[in-house]
């Protein structure tokens, strides 16, 4: 056997032994965690089997009864609150829009000082980064719970919660995009005697704008989903309606509202995806 083949054999064998050892370690830790999680999470097969018929009957109950010879009347009865749902859904989309917009402004204010490349002051950079990190790590719902106390029940609390969380999430993505930019144009603009704002306006923005626009639209899609449930804690939008219909066992209303939400989310997603593709295509051409 040649020297190289022998070395390969040895290398493979040690690699396999290492893998086996790692598998045992990770597998053991996983099984331990899983076994501990079952009682902590209050999960048992008996409970699942016991609850299963109820789950099925609930899911059956929320579906409307539509007889094939009375389709119009039955759909009408199912969607007795259609205009109300539509108005609330539009409000929800508007909440997401306002929240995304305010979050975008917040992200833009923080991202330049937070950037490795563009941040001038180390203290300011550190402070901006921690702020972005904090606001994206705390879930919107937590902000919403607190804002409902401070700003009162209603869409205002929801908009601000979405804005704060979006500022952090967008800020992170913006910072990543701006850290990867080509620095040569910046040097060129600095060499012509431009100031900090000039460098950003002429050197940075044209490079990052297509990406940033795409991220912002994507955030908007996510925010519509969040806005639809913030009503659960009193922060406006269609969530309040959904919460009431689930809690008051208004079965068919639940499916009616859910369908409105899913339809609206899908439509906005499709429109926004088409727009995003256009931004990124222009980026390739430009």
């Amino acid at each position: 056997m040649s020297d190289a083949a022998a070395r390969l054999e040895v290398a493979l064998r040690t690699h396999r032994a290492q893998l086996r050892q790692g598998n045992l370690l990770i597998g053991g830790a996983f099984l331990l965690a899983f076994a501990a999680a079952l009682p902590v999470g209050g999960f048992s097969l008996a409970r699942l089997i016991e609850g299963w018929p109820e789950i099925l009957s609930y899911l059956g109950a929320i579906l409307p009864e539509i007889r094939h010879d009375h389709v119009v009347e039955d759909v009408g009865k199912w969607y007795w609150g259609f205009w109300r749902y539509l108005r609330l859904m539009v409000d929800t989309v508007l909440m997401a829009y306002a929240g995304t917009l305010i979050g975008l402004v917040g992200a833009l204010l923080l991202v330049f000082p937070a950037s490795n490349l563009l941040g001038r002051s180390r203290v300011l950079r550190f402070a901006c980064r921690r702020m972005l990190e904090f606001s994206r790590s705390v879930p919107e719902l937590v902000f919403a719970l607190i804002f409902v106390v401070a700003f009162g029940v209603g869409p205002l609390a929801g908009v601000l919660a979405i804005a704060l969380h979006s500022a952090g999430a967008l800020g992170k993505l913006f910072a990543e995009a701006s850290d990867n930019l080509d620095t040569r144009p910046l040097d060129g603009i600095t060499a012509t005697g431009a100031g900090w704002f000039g460098v950003i306006r002429i050197g940075v923005l044209p490079q990052v704008l297509p990406n940033w626009a795409s991220y912002t639209l994507f955030r908007f899609e996510i925010n519509i989903r969040s806005a639809a449930v913030l009503g659960f804690v009193g922060a406006g939008g269609i969530g309040q309606e959904l919460y009431t219909s689930i809690r008051s066992f208004a079965y068919t209303d639940v499916s009616a509202v859910l369908l409105v939400i899913v339809a609206a989310v899908t439509m906005v997603d499709l429109a926004s995806q088409a727009l995003r593709r256009r931004f990124l295509d222009e980026d390739v051409i430009g």
């Binding site: 902590v40 999470g41 209050g42 999960f43 409970r47 609850g51 109820e54 789950i55 609930y58 719902l141 989903r225 639809a228 449930v229 659960f232 959904l242 919460y243 689930i246 809690r247 066992f249 639940v254 859910l258 939400i261 899913v262 989310v265 899908t266």
Partner: peptide, 28 residues
């Protein structure tokens, strides 16, 4: 599509109604 189109929070509220308060509803 339907199952993942509905937010986990909505499913949680529904399961709390069906199987009662507690982490079991959250797991489901």
């Amino acid at each position: 599509d339907v199952v993942r189109g509905v937010d986990p929070l909505v499913w949680a509220l529904i399961f709390v109604n069906v199987v009662g308060l507690g982490p079991f509803a959250g797991i489901l």
